[in-house]
């Protein structure tokens, strides 16, 4: 932070601590990015120097942090109007917007540069694309302009496995993009379930989330539609030589629960009654009709985590993946 900024700060605002700059990097999101990128890196099944593998994961994490800081800089006006985000360092006045911008640009450039020099330029290019997509396409354009914001913008959150795979193998084959497709298709049911019971906040901030623009009933139907498309995608790795028996059981069993929760949500009235209470706690209080939305939101996190964990476990135990597509072809022949 600049000296000028410190002296201009209102007396009531606490000075920026280093922890505020860590908060700009969205560490919880960063941990999910690290997890999915590590899965992609290990699923490549390529011998990679462990130091360089660590550097690749570090670069992906720092790149995610950089794009998060850019998001916090650009979205500080929206964040200030939402209960969930108004305590963030920029809207709370602890960090100047210009400092968040500088941190975001610096971390983004360093992460991409180091990835290119230390690992390979394909992964660096994919990382740069991910950062730009999140900071520019999603944050600056889609988020404020269309109800499809998190559908298209979800690509940024889906790409880390491909970046990790490219870091290990120097290529991004079909299976890498299958992991990307799973996260991409998982994002709409996940976020829309959340937005069904926090939509009043989005409406106040002027963010065109699906329940705000198209209504809760349409959102519930779309959640079910995306869920129906998601589950076959989650089963596909067992057919393409990516996931093994553990993965298949987890994806199929969890997928059945996911679909049941999505169907229950579609039949519910979640999101129909907008909660206008103003307290911070009220944001996460769930009315009776909203329980179905919260259940799907919570389970969606568990489902994605367990599927990727299954892939990691299979890789670490040296278990062979299934090739059900080839087996079916053999049977047909």
């Amino acid at each position: 932070m600049t000296d000028h900024a410190v002296h201009d700060m209102p007396a009531s605002v606490a000075p920026a601590r280093w922890q505020d700059y860590v908060q700009l990097l969205k560490p919880r999101v960063m941990s999910l990015v690290i997890f999915t990128a590590l899965t992609g890196l290990l699923c490549a099944r390529t011998a990679m120097n462990p130091v360089l593998a660590g550097v690749a994961i570090l670069c992906i994490a720092v790149g995610a942090g950089g794009s998060a800081a850019l998001n916090m800089w650009y979205d500080s006006d929206i964040d200030a109007r939402m209960r969930r985000t108004r305590g963030r360092p920029v809207p709370a006045g602890r960090v100047q917007g210009a400092d968040a911008l500088a941190l975001g640009i610096t971390l983004s450039l360093f992460s991409v540069g180091l990835m290119g020099l230390a690992v390979n330029w394909l992964s660096a290019g994919l990382l740069a694309f991910t950062i730009l997509f999140y900071a520019v396409v999603y944050t600056m354009w889609l988020k404020r302009s269309t109800a499809q914001n998190i559908v298209i913008g979800g690509l940024a959150g889906a790409l880390p496995p491909a970046v990790g795979w490219a870091a290990a193998a120097g290529a991004a084959p079909l299976n890498a993009w299958l992991l990307v497709a799973i996260i991409f298709m998982w994002t709409p049911p996940h976020f829309w379930a959340l937005s069904l019971y926090t939509q009043s906040d989005y409406a106040k901030a002027g963010v065109p989330m699906m329940p705000v623009v198209r209504g809760a009933a349409s959102t519930r139907r779309q959640i079910l539609g995306y869920s129906l498309a998601l589950i076959p995608l989650c089963l596909a790795p067992a057919f393409t030589g990516l996931g093994g028996a553990i993965y298949l059981s987890v994806a199929a069993g969890g997928g059945a629960i996911f679909l049941a929760l999505a169907a229950r949500l579609a039949a519910s009235r979640a999101g129909d009654a907008v909660d206008e209470r103003l307290s911070d706690q009220a944001l996460y209080d769930v009315r009776a009709g909203g329980k179905a939305a919260r259940n799907l939101f919570a389970f969606s996190i568990l489902y994605l985590f367990v599927m990727f964990a299954a892939l990691l476990v299979e890789r670490m135990l040296g278990l062979e993946p299934l090739h059900l597509a080839a087996a079916l072809k053999g049977l047909a022949a």
């Binding site: 932070m1 000296d3 410190v6 002296h7 606490a14 000075p15 920026a16 601590r17 280093w18 700059y21």
Partner: peptide, 18 residues
């Protein structure tokens, strides 16, 4: 050194160390 008060000075020191 900037006469900014002990709280701000401590925060600055933390940032510098980081």
């Amino acid at each position: 050194p900037w006469n900014e008060g002990p709280k701000a000075a401590a925060a600055r020191r933390g940032r510098s160390i980081a």
